[in-house]
Amino acid sequence: MIISLNGLDEPHLVRLAARLAPALRDGGTLYLRGDLGAGKTTFARALLQALGVDARIKSPTYSLIESYRVGGLDIHHLDLYRIADPGELEWLGLAELSDGLSLVLVEWPERGAGSLPSADLQLRLDHADAGRDLAARALSLRGEAMLAAWDPARPG
């Protein structure tokens, strides 16, 4: 299943993240792909806020990973932009993240190829004339359920 949306401005992107949040409360792995400045961190931050993270949400660009706990759900937000080789990730203990009980959000997943849990859902954000385009693609049965529960077209 694939959902494509075009010409999104930042407020619309934030609303879409908030609408996706309920579908992720049982955990899973979400890959966020796109060029620099395409909106990956904006989407991740809005998603974390919608999930109930009330702490300051820092971009993990330098720390590589920021973790949160909300209502019994462990959430791990990774930003691998600064990784040159997937071998650099060994010390992060990423194997423990693939237990299926946590929510793992990964920006720049291509830089951690082979070291990351498999994605359930992949979002691709691209620059577009009037904003951004978003394509959401399910990569597992869990991802199919996430997309089925998401209603991106709902007004508001």
Rank of each mutant, 00 (worst) to 15 (best):
L32E: 05
P86G: 08
D99M: 09
L32M: 06
A135P: 00
E88D: 14
R69E: 15
L103D: 06
E90V: 00
M1V: 07
R137S: 10
L47E: 07
Q49A: 15
R111D: 04
A128P: 00
P60M: 07
D126G: 08
D35N: 14
L116D: 09
W108V: 09
A136V: 07
T61N: 04
E110R: 07
F43P: 02
L30I: 10
P86A: 14
R25A: 06
E90A: 14
G71F: 06
P109D: 14
S98R: 13
R19L: 10
D133I: 02
I3C: 04
L16N: 05
R56P: 00
M1N: 11
R33M: 05
L80H: 04
H76V: 06
I65V: 15
V106E: 09
R111P: 00
L101F: 01
P117F: 02
S67L: 02
W91F: 12
L73I: 06
V53I: 09
D79K: 01
G28P: 02
G93E: 09
E88Q: 14
A23P: 02
Q122F: 00
G71D: 14
A46D: 05
R111F: 00
T42Q: 06
R69Y: 07
H12W: 04
E90F: 12
L116Y: 00
H127V: 07
I2W: 06
A130S: 14
A148V: 05
T41C: 10
L134C: 00
A130G: 05
S118T: 14
A23K: 09
E90Y: 08
P109Y: 04
Y81H: 09
G7T: 05
L125C: 09
A46V: 04
L89I: 03
S115G: 13
L78H: 05
A50Y: 08
D9I: 06
Q49V: 04
G37K: 15
T61G: 04
R56G: 13
M146G: 01
S118F: 05
T42G: 01
S59A: 10
A17F: 10
S63C: 10
K40G: 05
V70H: 10
E66C: 03
P155C: 12
G71S: 07
A44R: 01
Y31Q: 00
R124T: 12
A153Q: 15
R142G: 01
R19D: 12
L80G: 07
D133Y: 00
G93S: 10
M1R: 13
L125W: 02
D133V: 02
S102C: 12
L5Y: 08
D54F: 03
L32W: 02
L147N: 09
L97M: 14
A38T: 09
E88T: 09
L32F: 03
T41D: 08
L103W: 03
D129F: 04
D133Q: 02
P117C: 04
A135Y: 05
T61M: 11
